[in-house]
Design a protein around this nucleic acid. Structure first.
Ligand SMILES: [Mn+2]
Ligand SMILES: [Mn+2]
Ligand SMILES: [Mn+2]
Ligand SMILES: [Mn+2]
Lengths: 221, 221
DNA sequence: TTACATTTTTAGGCTATCCTAATACCGGAT
DNA sequence: ATCCGGTATTAGGATAGCCTAAAAATGTAA
């Protein structure tokens, strides 16, 4: 019955992370996909060794940039198909959502883009969410990048911090909190990263940097 | 990557049987699907125990009525999708054929019928072949039924005989040959079947009956 | 701090589908 | 009638993805 499970897991993980604004937990994923928690743990390990998710046992999963990109690409397929099913074939939204979630894994990039054009390059899915304009433009509103994956010299806005409250508060007092501008100054071999916030330079360990998500300053519109 | 393999095998078997007017051989199937011959043998056994194909080792496979029905249903999906891809999305035929062969396994019956209607219930696929009008009308030109699966009292035309030449010639001399009208008189427990051809009654063993394919007289248009 | 309920992981198994190597079978040529 | 090359099947094994039961970790309430 099934297809590329990576896709389904990535899609679900993206969904949960955005919904809860925190790492996706094993149990949540298992409930979304109707599989057992051990199956999820197993798959998470595979996703991790493919560089698609960041994973520390018992801590939940985050998506890497690569993982986010793939997840968003599938999400876009889902949205375009859902739009087609609702607007052209006259399905109701709920049905359309379910059908789209099956089809999205079988539709090639080429077919998807033709459908997208046929629909007149719609900006919104009937579910209300915006559709990425271009399949390569995967840096939309909510595509955040973990700080440790940002390049030296790049900058953006702190979008989310998924750390224990105390750590978060400590960072807040340093000026690292949601909405704040941040610039990546230097990345050292050990994984330490120095950043500039509110004018002052701060060094962060990799483990902390991994949990700080940045909305990168878009290089061009 | 993988879907419902039964569908893919059935589709291929139908294709080969119609193309060669003879049972599909293991090697042919393995070449069509790019899998090894042992994989085909294994799958044939599974199809057989699901009642979808008739199989005698070393002899190739025939489809049962059930198998033919399923195969034709998938074929219809393929054709409708191919039509959509060519006529609406402007794919070239070859591309469309390939894409359709992926999609056909993911598209639900409901979506397929909506697409079919959206297309205006086309009678032909761009590849030139007729499309079944209704997903349940699976008794099109080439849907033959093995004699031993016909019901008592039903009748049709002999469509194909897949037996060694001598046996075939013997049957010919009895009036059982392609194009001849035939009526099923009685089926006995042992599997013997008596039929009426050219006015006279003839009794046939099950093994032979299995290899005589009938185009049933359509009960209604 | 300890104890318990919940969550996650580990261990061990199952099935579907595929593969290669070895063996068995079959039909045509001698 | 026998042999041979090609075809098909059997034997044995791999991998992906799923499962249940048991063990480990977590965090929260007492
Ligand atoms: Mn989906
Ligand atoms: Mn899906
Ligand atoms: Mn085709
Ligand atoms: Mn196919």
């Amino acid at each position: 019955m099934h297809i590329d499970r990576f896709e389904e897991y990535l899609e679900t993980i993206l969904y949960l992370i955005r919904k809860n604004q925190s790492p996706a937990k094993t149990k949540q994923i298992s409930e979304e996909l109707n599989v057992s928690p051990p199956s999820v743990t197993e798959m998470i390990k595979k996703l991790h060794s493919s560089g698609l998710v960041e994973y520390t046992p018992y801590q939940g999963v985050e998506l890497t940039k690569k993982g986010t990109d793939q997840a968003i690409k599938i999400k876009r397929k889902h949205q375009v198909l859902e739009t087609f099913l609702v607007d052209v074939l006259d399905f109701d939204r709920k049905e359309a959502h379910k059908e789209a979630c099956e089809l999205e894994h079988a539709v090639s990039d080429a077919v998807l883009e033709k459908i997208y054009e046929f629909l007149g390059c719609p900006e919104y899915c009937p579910d209300g969410n915006p559709i990425n304009i271009d399949k390569n433009n995967i840096r939309q509103e909510e595509s955040f990048i973990p700080l440790d994956e940002m390049e030296e010299g790049s900058s953006g806005k702190v979008a989310r911090v998924t750390l224990p409250r105390e750590t978060k508060e400590r960072l807040t007092s340093l000026g690292i909190l949601t909405g704040e501008d941040i610039e990546i100054r230097r990345k050292q071999k050990q994984g330490c990263i120095s950043v500039i916030v509110v004018g002052s330079e701060i060094a962060l360990g990799r483990d902390i940097a991994k949990k700080i998500f940045i909305a990168p300053k878009s290089k061009r519109v």
